[in-house]
Computed example of a mutant assay.
Amino acid sequence: MNAYLVGADVLGNIPDLLTQYGISIHKHVSGRHAAHQRKPASLKGVDLIILFTDFLGHNVMRHYRELANEENIRFVACRRSVCSLSQSLDKVCPRDGCAACPNQKNRR
């Protein structure tokens, strides 16, 4: 599963946590630059958008949420901490991987 991360200048231990969930980072933007604050042209190859709310403005979050809804991509909004991200990911993607994912069972 590929994730598009929005917010935070430094990720710290977050890549290690994402690896535990079987998620790789497709792209990471800080959200500070004007170009990062607009909707990206496309999110091809992205399965999940992670928004770090303590580093983003309301309009930036709105743009990415709208794009996720338009392209049928799941998104998670949380603070930039390993604990907060872990709690949010448990709701979307279990640590056991895709075999235990309730969304995977619905696709068959």
Rank of each mutant, 00 (worst) to 15 (best):
I25E: 05
H26R: 07
F75M: 06
Q20D: 09
D54F: 03
V29W: 06
I25S: 05
N59D: 14
L43M: 10
I49C: 07
Q37T: 06
V46N: 00
Q104T: 13
S24G: 12
I23N: 10
K27D: 03
R108Y: 10
S86M: 02
S84V: 02
A99S: 15
G57Y: 10
K44C: 13
I23K: 05
G31W: 00
K91L: 13
Q20L: 11
C78N: 06
G31L: 01
L17A: 04
M1L: 12
H28W: 07
H58E: 15
F52M: 05
L11N: 03
H63I: 06
L48Q: 01
H26S: 03
E66W: 09
L56A: 05
V29A: 10
H58F: 12
S88V: 00
G31K: 04
C101Q: 06
C98K: 10
C78M: 05
V6D: 02
G7D: 06
S88F: 02
G12N: 08
D90S: 09
F75S: 07
R62T: 09
V6G: 01
S81L: 02
R74W: 10
D54S: 08
C98Y: 14
Q20W: 01
I73A: 11
D9T: 08
P102V: 10
T19A: 15
S88G: 15
L51P: 01
R74Q: 11
A35G: 04
E66D: 15
L17R: 00
I49W: 03
